[in-house]
Amino acid sequence: MAIPIYAGKLERTWYYSYRVICTLIFLFLILPILIIIPLSFNVQPYFTFTPEMMSLDPAGYSLRWYEEFFASEVWMKSIKNSFSVAIASTILATTLGTLAALGLSRPEMPYRALIMSILISPMIVPLIISAAGMFFFYSSVNLAGSFLGLILAHTALGIPFVVITVTATLSGFDYSLTRAAASLGASPRTVFFKIMLPLVTPGVISGALFAFITSFDEVVVAIFIAGPEQRTIPLQMWGGIREQISPTILAVATILVAISIMLLTVLELLRRRSEKQRGLTPG
């Protein structure tokens, strides 16, 4: 993409204006997320930069919204709920999803296309319809307003991501490795745990991360299924934004951005690792 020395004036103009356009689009993507970080330290309950903040006066900044967040029983409880529901549904979705992906990627699997589209349907069906359907279902089995109900509902929503990422990893899997291991005398069990699992682990972990973030960020189904005891962070934010948006929400948002940066880093490291394992080291 570097501009050649012999480029004419027109080409140069185009080259630089193209760079400017791209920069603007990248700014559109990233600025809105970054802008709430300084705003969450605003000492005033406003959602804009005060003159003190603009002049970088320390008096314009404070941690009061973070203090409010950490002191609030409701928010603390919702953090606990969010993590426990997300972790439980991630474990369920990852276990079930990985098993299914292993089955689906076997060449002998019957009705593969049909089963695949059933398994990924929670990703396709509009959330409001899923939420309404699950609301009626979990009410009829007395699980609405319970942790188990919310966990199972989030599991269903996270499963497509696990199935897709793990089958994608397996589609590039070299089955001659398992045959080689078997011919060298390894039992099917050993082959699975020593050969197969280590190679698909990056796919499983990234599927698990997707399942985690799906549940951690989910609000529509939670609106319908969660009772007052199961309020999660997104549900709490949803209520907060609708009623009276308080700067505490910006503090929460900043913390959530930090969490997503962490997840992104883990995912990036995994990607590099799996590329290295497959001999596709980035240049």
Binding site: P32, M237, L256
Partner: peptide, 11 residues
């Protein structure tokens, strides 16, 4: 990877 609600709030 950022929460949907965070992105909506920011707007």
């Amino acid at each position: 990877w950022t929460s949907l609600l965070v992105r909506t709030t920011t707007w």
